[in-house]
C-alpha cells in the first residue's frame, strides 16, 4: 500500500498512438495531395537553387560589398563581408551554400507569406491573441526534431519536408512581431485616421502597417535567423547542403570538415543578418 505515493500510479493516457494513427490516416487519405504538393514545392526550391547557381561567384561578392558600402556606409565592412563570402568559396562550399540558401530562402518566403497575414489578423481580431499565443509559444519551444517526424511521414525525406519543418519553426517571430507592432501603434494615431473617415483597411494600410514597419522588419529578420538555425537539423531528414556536411563530419569525427562547414553556416547567418539590417536602415533614412 502507499505505492502510488512514492512512484507514479499505473494510470496512463495513451495519446501517442492516436497521433500516430492520425498522421498515418492523413498520409493515406491525402497521399495524392502530398505527392503533388511535394512536387510543386520541390520544383520551387530547385528553381531558387538554379537561380542562385546562375549568379557568378564574383558578382555575389561584389554585390555584398556594394550593399555594405551603400547601406552600412563602411568600406571596412564591405571588405570584411566580401572576404567572408570569399572564404566560403575557399572552403569549397560555394555550391553547397547555394543549395542551403535555396532551402532557407524558400522557407523564409513561405514563412512571410503565411506569417504576415496571420500577424495582421491577430492584431485586428480582439481575443485572437489569447487564443493563439500559447500555440505560438508551443511552436517555438517544441524541440525542432519533433516537426521532422510528421513532415517526413507525410512527404518522405528530402528538401521539401525540411522546408516545411523550417517554416513551422521560423514563422513564429514574424507572426508575433507583426501582431505586436500593429497593436503597439499609438492609439491616438489610429483614432485620428478614423476621425478622417478612413476605413479599417485604409487605416491598416496607410497607418498601422507603416507605423509598425520597424517591428515587422525585426520579426522578418528573426525569422530569417531561425531558418538558418534549422539548417543542420533539417539535414537529418535528407536536406543536402552545408547541414549535411556538418552531419557527415560528426559521423566521421572529422573536426576540420565540421568546423569549415559550420563556419560557412555562421557566415551565411551573419551576412543575411547584417545586410538585411543595412537595407532596412537605408530604407528608413529615405524620406517616406
Amino acid at each position: 500500500m502507499g505505492q502510488w505515493l512514492t512512484s507514479f500510479p499505473g494510470i496512463r493516457l495513451h495519446i501517442a498512438e492516436p497521433i500516430d494513427h492520425f498522421v498515418r490516416y492523413i498520409n493515406i487519405t491525402y497521399g495524392a495531395f502530398f505527392v503533388s504538393s511535394k512536387k510543386l514545392l520541390g520544383a520551387f526550391i530547385s528553381a531558387v537553387n538554379a537561380l542562385l547557381d546562375l549568379i557568378p561567384w564574383w558578382l555575389a561578392i561584389l554585390a555584398v560589398a556594394a550593399i555594405s558600402v551603400r547601406c552600412l556606409k563602411s568600406r571596412r565592412k564591405a571588405l570584411l563581408y566580401g572576404g567572408m563570402l570569399f572564404m566560403v568559396g575557399l572552403f569549397g562550399y560555394w555550391e553547397m551554400m547555394c543549395e542551403t540558401l535555396s532551402i532557407v530562402i524558400t522557407a523564409v518566403l513561405f514563412s512571410l507569406l503565411i506569417g504576415l497575414p496571420i500577424g495582421i489578423a491577430l492584431a485586428a481580431v480582439k481575443g485572437a491573441d489569447t487564443f493563439l499565443r500559447p500555440l505560438l509559444d508551443a511552436m517555438q519551444t517544441m524541440p525542432t526534431f519533433v516537426y521532422m517526424i510528421p513532415a517526413v511521414m507525410l512527404l518522405g525525406p528530402g528538401k521539401v519536408p525540411a522546408v516545411l519543418a523550417t517554416v513551422v519553426y521560423a514563422v513564429v517571430p514574424v507572426i508575433r512581431l507583426t501582431s505586436h507592432g500593429i497593436s503597439q501603434v499609438d492609439e491616438e494615431v489610429v483614432e485620428a485616421s478614423r476621425a478622417f473617415g478612413a476605413s479599417r483597411w485604409q487605416t491598416l494600410v496607410k497607418v498601422q502597417i507603416p507605423q509598425a514597419k520597424p517591428t515587422i522588419l525585426t520579426g522578418i529578420n528573426q525569422t530569417m535567423m531561425m531558418a538558418v538555425a534549422m539548417v543542420v537539423t533539417s539535414a537529418m531528414i535528407g536536406a543536402n547542403g552545408l547541414g549535411m556536411e556538418v552531419l557527415i563530419a560528426i559521423n566521421r569525427m572529422e573536426s576540420g570538415r565540421g568546423i569549415t562547414a559550420g563556419l560557412s553556416i555562421v557566415i551565411i547567418a551573419i551576412l543575411l543578418d547584417r545586410l538585411t539590417q543595412g537595407l532596412v536602415q537605408a530604407g528608413k533614412e529615405d524620406p517616406q
Binding site: D186, E188, V189, E191, A192, A195, K206, V207, P210, Q211, K213, Q288
Partner: peptide, 8 residues
Amino acid sequence: HGGLLSHR
C-alpha cells in the same frame, strides 16, 4: 498629442 503619422 497631434495623432500625426510619424512615417510621413
